[in-house]
């Protein structure tokens, strides 16, 4: 991080604000617009919202639908 540290503090702060703004704008500005404009994405957004599914969760215990699926299969397969 030598080159970063060589820049003056105001420059580094400006750089941070620009990058952070860019990232936030992409996620909270561009993505919602794209989502609302592309039908399949809009449909998916609405479906996930209605059913309370969070695709960002990575382990099975964090996802309620896994327990529901397990329970359904347990009954369907008589386990």
């Amino acid at each position: 991080m030598e080159s970063i540290n060589q820049a003056s503090l105001p420059n580094r702060i400006i750089r941070m604000i620009v990058i952070l703004s860019g990232v936030l704008l992409f996620v909270y500005g561009l993505l919602p617009v794209v989502t609302s404009q592309v039908p399949i994405l809009a449909q998916m957004h609405s479906y996930l919202d209605q059913n309370g599914i969070d695709p960002s969760r990575y382990y099975y215990t964090d996802v309620e639908q896994v327990a529901e699926g397990e329970h359904y299969l347990e009954i369907a397969l008589d386990r």
């Binding site: 479906y47 695709p55 969760r57 896994v66």
Partner: peptide, 25 residues
């Protein structure tokens, strides 16, 4: 990721969701 599996499965239907989520588990 499991959450993404549930999301994709739910988009196909209830049975797909149950199977997809369980396989992932």
């Amino acid at each position: 990721s499991t959450g993404a599996v549930a999301a994709a499965g739910a988009f196909l239907g209830d049975k797909a969701l149950h199977v997809a989520a369980t396989i992932k588990m």
